Amino acid sequence: VNQLKAVLVRADPALRESLTGLGPMTLVRRCAALDDVAPLDAPTTARYTLRRLATRILQLTDEVNDLNRQLTTLLTRHAPVLLTRVGVGPDTAAALLIAAGDNPQRLASDASFAALCGVSPIEASSGKTHRHRLNRGGDRQANAALHRIVITRLRCDPRTRAYQQRRLAEGKTPREIIRCLKRYVAREIYNAIPRTSPLATAAT
């Protein structure tokens, strides 16, 4: 998409103006429908390049959509509760299930799952100062998945936004609030993860 936009910026003004103001996918479809109208010259080369890039974007979009459908089907079969959680999509659910592994019953508590995902707070107090620092360990893909869930909830979930405002009033920084929320989300996800392996279920 970035390549397509870069070509469009340097394209013939008439061609560029004909594609101005279109939404992302409308722009891609319009570019995919472009025709070569003359022997190879600068304007036609731009049309050819835009058409090839747009065609590739549409093909990859179809591939992504197909994979998401298959992933959603698998998740609905093996971890249906997980997809009902606010902010949890197929990608984030898959990353968290992969982190839990094929033997999720080894995770004795939500604290162990939080440590696995690198969202358990680490004591960093000194003297009369009591604080915790960021945990840089754990599964970074699972950590990123929890981060995406929190950011999504901060945008659209009233309870999360209310929590954010309350902690801001207490003097917490936005980064500290996100760390706290990631720990709470880890507890919620832990309770939604099946305690039996999908492979074991399939074998029976």
Rank of each mutant, 00 (worst) to 15 (best):
V1H: 14
N2V: 12
K5H: 15
K5Y: 13
L8E: 07
L8T: 03
V9K: 10
R10Y: 14
D12R: 05
R16Y: 10
L19Y: 13
G21T: 03
P24I: 09
P24D: 11
V28I: 00
R29M: 04
C31E: 04
A32W: 01
A32C: 10
D35A: 15
V37A: 13
L40A: 12
L40V: 11
T44W: 11
A46T: 02
R47N: 02
R47Y: 07
T49H: 07
L53P: 01
A54N: 05
T55K: 11
L58Y: 08
Q59I: 14
L60R: 15
D66P: 06
L67R: 07
L74K: 04
L75A: 00
T76D: 14
H78D: 07
H78A: 07
A79D: 01
L83S: 02
T84V: 06
R85V: 15
V86L: 14
V86F: 10
V86Q: 15
V86S: 14
D91G: 11
L96E: 01
L97G: 02
I98S: 12
G101S: 01
N103M: 05
R106T: 12
L107C: 04
L107T: 07
A108V: 11
S109L: 11
S109V: 08
D110P: 09
A115F: 05
A115Q: 09
V119F: 13
P121H: 07
A124S: 12
S125G: 04
S126M: 14
H132W: 09
G138D: 04
G138V: 03
G138T: 04
A142K: 03
A142M: 01
N143C: 13
L146M: 02
R148I: 13
V150M: 01
T152K: 10
L154P: 01
R155H: 12
C156H: 15
D157H: 06
D157I: 14
R159N: 09
A162L: 05
L168Q: 12
L168W: 05
A169S: 09
A169H: 02
E170L: 13
T173F: 09
P174N: 09
P174Q: 03
E176Y: 07
R179F: 09
L181K: 00
A186V: 06
A192P: 04
R195W: 00
R195M: 05
S197R: 05
S197F: 02
P198R: 00
A200Y: 09
A203S: 10
